[in-house]
């Protein structure tokens, strides 16, 4: 039970969002994604929840927040705070172009049996040996790599901040994520460790789930070249998620679970 309580800690919950289908969703929600002017601010909320985009479960920890500016440089998040249900931070946009806010997390997850009883553990790789008893049987290790993204653009959208990461799951945007409009088709490519990730399930859900009877998610699969296309049925804030499991963990005898999710705003025509 104590283990379960620990699992409920926000950081862990954020990482747990990498778990399949039924899990909570990790997201960031910017106050605006398309901005004009010369010197503007954006506030971003970050949480892990079932309802999109309602902070009703746990906040997303910002320890691993990285903001990349229009020239690919790091941008400082200001006024960061974490409350009971959500974290929040501000971005001061002073240069035209696209900014990407990312929370990138890595972790190790173990399930094992002790005297026939199933146990779960989550923590840093170096703590595994100390925390999991020698007598444990049926030890299964999963290394998790998770990325949560959102994008905002001041003036004309630019691409340096969109450069895909070399590790884990990431998105290559053939259609700029700040240039999405209802009725139009956007094309993206899912990359795993920088290479196209073929045949991966992608889930897309429009926000406001709380006020609908059916979530109405869009389910897609990436093609052989890792690409997928989505025609936005209507304007709104959308959550996009994908996950891959393989044996390419950097920790011996572990499986790897890589997850990507992003918040994308689709504007009316």
């Amino acid at each position: 039970m104590r283990h379960l309580a620990r699992l409920a800690l926000p950081l862990l919950a954020a990482l747990a969002a990498a778990a399949p289908a039924a899990a909570h969703k990790a997201w960031m929600l910017p106050s605006s994604t398309v901005l004009s002017g010369a010197d503007v601010w954006v506030t971003v909320d970050a949480a892990v929840s079932n309802d999109l985009f309602v902070f009703e479960h746990v906040p997303m920890r910002l320890d691993n927040l990285v903001v990349t500016g229009p020239d690919g440089e790091a941008v400082k998040a200001e006024n960061a705070a974490t409350g009971k249900f959500r974290s929040t931070f501000d971005l001061h946009l002073t240069k035209p172009g696209t900014y990407r806010a990312s929370v990138v997390g890595e972790g190790l997850f173990a399930t094992y049996k002790l005297n026939g009883e199933p146990k779960r553990w989550r923590g840093r790789p170096e703590a595994l040996e100390r925390d999991v008893p020698k007598e444990a049987t049926d030890l299964r290790l999963t290394q998790t790599q998770q990325r949560t993204d959102t994008f905002v653009s001041l003036g004309k959208p630019s691409t340096p901040a969109l450069a895909p990461a070399a590790k884990g799951l990431d998105l290559r945007a053939e259609t700029h994520p700040n240039n999405l409009a209802s009725g139009e088709t956007a094309r993206f490519t899912l990359l795993l460790d920088g290479a196209p990730a073929a045949n991966v399930d992608v889930e897309i859900v429009r926000g406001g789930v709380r006020y609908r009877d059916a979530p109405g998610e869009i389910r897609l699969k990436t093609g052989a070249d890792g690409s997928f296309s989505v025609t936005w049925p209507q304007a709104g804030m959308y959550w996009l998620g994908a996950e891959v499991q393989d044996d390419k963990a950097t920790i011996p005898n572990a499986r790897r679970r890589a997850a990507y999710n992003a918040t994308l705003e689709v504007l009316p025509q």
Binding site: L35, G37, K156, A181
Partner: peptide, 19 residues
């Protein structure tokens, strides 16, 4: 800056030429 902050509310113009 003026009221440039709200220029993006003219959404189609902003997307096609405004930005």
């Amino acid at each position: 800056e003026g009221g440039a902050k709200w220029l993006k509310d003219m959404r189609q113009w902003w997307r096609r030429i405004g930005r």
